[in-house]
Simulated assay, not measured.
Amino acid sequence: MFQKVLIAEDADYTSSGIEVALRDMQIAEVAYAQYCDEAFLKLKKAWLDNKPFDLLVSDLSFKEGMHKQRLSSGEELISEAKKLQPSLKTIVFSIEEKPYRVQQLCNELEVNAYVWKSNHGQEELKKAVQAVYNGNFFITPQLAHALRDKVSFEVTDYDIFLLKQLAEGLDQKEISEILKENHIKPSSISSVEKRLKLLKENFNANNPTQLIAITKDFGLI
């Protein structure tokens, strides 16, 4: 089992459920940080002291503290932690359940597990820690659909931009003009039309209104 684990969580550690989940897992050392900057400093010190952490368990959202933080989210913390220590295992423990965000975090950050803070969060976290220790990827079963089916289609920043403009009620010609004004390519009306058509096909939407409704449900916009 992991011998040194760092928890990054702005809630009271002793009442967050994490301590209960890890108490009986024979982990020799469990450290806690309430802010992302604090967590990163602990990771860095341990790394420089040649006593690195084996696992980072982090929430995604953190309350603002009295002092401005360089790292303000778990996403930023995990990204920086992996740059410092590429071999570090990481688990997201969050209430975030939007499929697109889950997919983005798992694919782009390459976390080793994604645990949804739900009624069964404590038990799921224990399963995740064990799975990651065994070299396996873990995701809360209710969120597994986020990594397959429709959202497996690669949605780009360009797509998000198009969808947001469409949600504002703009037509393809108006979207094309805004793309040109912002020097975003491709910007032709035909390019906008083709990409929106592909998005509608991927999300099984019959019209722009339905496309916006579906992508909102997926957390894209």
Rank of each mutant, 00 (worst) to 15 (best):
A144K: 12
V92H: 03
A146K: 06
G135C: 03
E96H: 13
E154D: 12
L162W: 03
V129W: 02
Y114P: 03
F153G: 07
K127I: 07
K127D: 05
V115D: 02
K127E: 12
Q104W: 10
E97A: 14
N119K: 11
Q103H: 13
L84M: 12
K150V: 13
D149L: 15
D157W: 06
K89C: 00
E168K: 15
E110C: 12
K117T: 10
L166G: 11
D171Y: 12
A128K: 05
Q122H: 09
I178W: 00
V111R: 02
L163I: 15
A144E: 14
D171R: 09
L166S: 09
K127G: 01
Q130L: 05
D157K: 12
L143P: 01
S176I: 10
K164I: 09
I160N: 05
E124F: 11
V92A: 07
Q130P: 03
Q122I: 13
E124T: 05
Q165M: 11
K82D: 06
I160V: 15
T140P: 05
L170N: 13
G121C: 09
I95Y: 11
E96R: 06
G135M: 01
E96V: 14
P141G: 08
F138C: 05
I139G: 01
Q130V: 04
I175Q: 05
A167C: 04
K83A: 08
I91D: 00
H145I: 11
V102C: 04
A128R: 02
L166K: 07
N107R: 15
S94H: 12
S87L: 10
F93L: 12
A146E: 00
D171T: 10
S118V: 13
I175H: 07
S87T: 10
N136F: 03
N112Q: 05
P141T: 11
N134C: 00
L88Q: 07
E168D: 13
R101M: 13
Y133N: 09
K173V: 14
A146L: 06
Q165A: 12
E177T: 15
N112A: 04
F153N: 14
I95C: 11
A146Q: 06
V155R: 00
S152H: 14
Q165I: 06
Q122F: 08
L143N: 02
L166C: 07
I160M: 07
S118W: 01
K164R: 13
E123G: 06
K164T: 12
V129N: 03
E97D: 14
F93C: 00
R101F: 04
S94D: 09
V132A: 01
S118Y: 08
L105R: 01
T90P: 08
I95K: 15
E124S: 14
K82G: 08
P99E: 00
K89M: 00
V92M: 07
F93I: 06
N119Y: 07
W116N: 09
N134K: 09
L166P: 02
G135Y: 01
A146N: 05
A113V: 04
T90N: 03
S176G: 14
L163D: 04
S87E: 13
L143V: 08
S87V: 06
Y100F: 15
K83V: 11
I160A: 11
A144N: 07
F137V: 08
D149G: 10
L170S: 08
R101A: 07
K126E: 12
V132C: 01
E168A: 15
K98R: 13
E110Y: 00
S152K: 15
N112Y: 02
S79T: 12
F93D: 01
L84T: 03
K150A: 14
S79V: 08
